[in-house]
Design a protein around this nucleic acid. Structure first.
Lengths: 346, 346
DNA sequence: CCGGTCTACTGTATCGGTAAAGACGAGAGG
DNA sequence: CCTCTCGTCTTTACCGATACAGTAGACCGG
């Protein structure tokens, strides 16, 4: 490998005695030249240590970088720790890889809340984002195609989300269907829901779903407030809930992680699940299947969510003038495991 | 916002009546022009809807893209599901953000095992990678700075890793120090370790660490084989281990996830932890603190790992001819929680 | 009044490719 | 034999910036 200066398309062209464009074609459009010449070019390239067209230059010339941004304005470490978010990111990455693209993580620094990407990209996936309007200003000005996921839909932009309201309804119906009437709900603080319209759109919708079922039955749920991604305070809330004199016989939780805290609290209080207490999680994340007992929960198809988001974005990238932006709402599904049963006889 | 054609540096320059270069400076090197002119330029830009220099063009001109690749050749979803990997990715992203850069995830498609990034980047972090030599060929030819993390060090490349051998030793010493003599080990299949020199460098080193302690004491550990990221078979292995007539009084596990399966198996067999059985995890991942009982485990500083990896890479990017590549080995630390105690009296 | 040093801009030459249309010889069809 | 079409390259014209080396006027001491 000769290591004298940068090896460019031109140097290969000179070596073989053809035009630069022909070398470009040899790499990018094999059908544009005879295979004999192509082979000569390729082996000359090999010999010179040329490693294919420079992606940066290609990006400028083609107007395509081959990567899309994934915007997450919450603390990334916290978000990734959430099993579901991790799976989503993975799904997005997989699907993009299939299209020869890659995903670039866009997270704010601690100091500065707004992400202003200095990085080239073809489009933007908005996944978990506090105040989209501020955050997205730069992207819109730049004319970047945008797709939002699990966000309150934004006018003119495609949006992919899950039917959380119906999902919550399924959980509540399951519990009431088993005969439960004293029902607890472990969720996040109400004010947090109102403050931010990002992740907690989700929380808000689940709320609505639970009430859709409980209200008509005249059931007033016993509320408890956990903290997103914080184990200790959530455990405390769960325990307090179970120590009430009017202890619920069933608990609906905002997430599987919350549900696990309820399981722990129950164990610590000597309550059997599901004999004494039924617990319903949400998300069907990894812990749901491996907890003791395995959790009844609500599942969503994260992989499909990722796939659809990428598909929508790619469409928007390839054909900016295309059809009106989609609004996809994915279904949620009840997964019954062993954490729920009819309430104990009084 | 006038939406007629692309707004480029030139158009702003024409509008204000200065050279293109001056506009460029207005954005990238404010000290190169009078602030009066700069303000005029900025407001003209605003007016025209110019959103700052095009990152792709800038990347070509500057020779810097502002993003680095993170290579992970395992199934990304599986890797991210591993809490520790997720935290590492987050740490890397955070640290890069602090430097105005971003991370691009590089994962192989299912079909084709080799990642050949068509995406521009300034350097490469190699995190979890089966056969680095094949995988890295393109990157090396392209002259990309590379840093490996938790990999067998590669000649000439900086490497960041954790002292897994010592970590494992700490766990083993803890157990033997408490008086345990019948010790089980729950790890992955030995052949898997030998097959691949990526993640399982880790497993291999932990192995060595355990034996460093057990061998001199003449303790022959009872081996059980779990499966990475698979709950059911790991549970089965754990259970089989605990059902042996010569049931161990303490178990050393390859990971916290493995340890949790041991806890479950113990519970299901009516064994109390730590009275009847001590369990040591590894990694101090989220589950370690929230499991019942909380796990004694080995902690590593993932955030530091990410930070150091980024620092090393950035150094290599900025100064390719710099000092000899570093070999950083981070310490591991024993975290004692409630899953370990002296063995029960015989 | 002149050289010297600043400050504030401008000019020119890339950066390393790609798209689209042009040129040119060869075989096909009339 | 002449034109037409094809398959193969080549030409020309960008893509949208930045680096670096000027250059012109301002200020300054002698």
């Amino acid at each position: 490998m000769s290591w004298m200066g940068k090896v460019t398309l031109q140097s290969v062209a000179d070596r073989v005695g053809v035009s630069r464009m022909t070398v470009s074609n040899a790499f990018s459009r094999p059908d544009q030249l005879s295979s004999a010449l192509r082979d000569r070019i390729l082996s000359a390239a090999e010999e010179l240590g040329y490693s294919g067209p420079d992606p940066a230059a290609r990006a400028l010339a083609r107007g395509r970088t081959g990567s899309v941004g994934l915007l997450i304005t919450d603390r990334l470490s916290a978000v990734i720790a959430d099993a579901l978010a991790g799976e989503f990111i993975a799904a997005v990455s997989d699907e993009l890889a299939r299209q020869g693209m890659a995903v670039t993580l866009l997270a704010p620094t601690e100091t500065d809340g707004v992400v202003e990407a200095e990085v080239a990209m073809d489009g933007l996936l908005v996944y978990i984002c506090g105040s989209p309007d501020d955050q997205l200003a730069w992207a819109r000005r730049r004319g970047l195609p945008i797709v939002t996921i699990d966000q309150r839909p934004i006018d003119g932009l495609p949006s992919i989300k899950v039917d959380d309201r119906t999902g919550a309804r399924l959980g509540a119906e399951h519990l009431t269907g088993l005969g439960h009437r004293r029902i607890g709900i472990l969720t996040v603080a109400q004010e947090e829901i109102e403050d931010r319209d990002d992740v907690h759109v989700t929380a808000a919708e689940r709320h609505l779903g639970w009430h859709d079922v409980l209200d008509p039955l005249g059931i007033e749920p016993l509320m408890a407030e956990g903290v997103y991604l914080a184990s200790a305070p959530t455990y405390a809330a769960a325990r307090a809930l179970l120590e009430r004199p009017d202890r619920p016989t069933g608990v609906l939780c905002l997430s599987d992680a919350f549900a696990v805290e309820v399981l722990h609290a129950a164990t610590d209080l000597g309550l059997g699940v599901p004999e004494d207490l039924s617990v319903v999680g949400y998300d069907d994340s990894r812990v749901a299947a491996t907890s003791r007992p395995p959790l009844t929960t609500i599942r969503q198809d994260v992989v499909a969510k990722g796939r659809l988001a990428v598909a929508a974005l790619v469409r928007a990238i390839n054909d900016p003038e295309s059809a009106p932006p989609e609004r996809v709402v994915l279904p949620a599904e009840l997964v019954v495991r062993e954490s729920t049963a009819p309430p104990p006889a009084e």
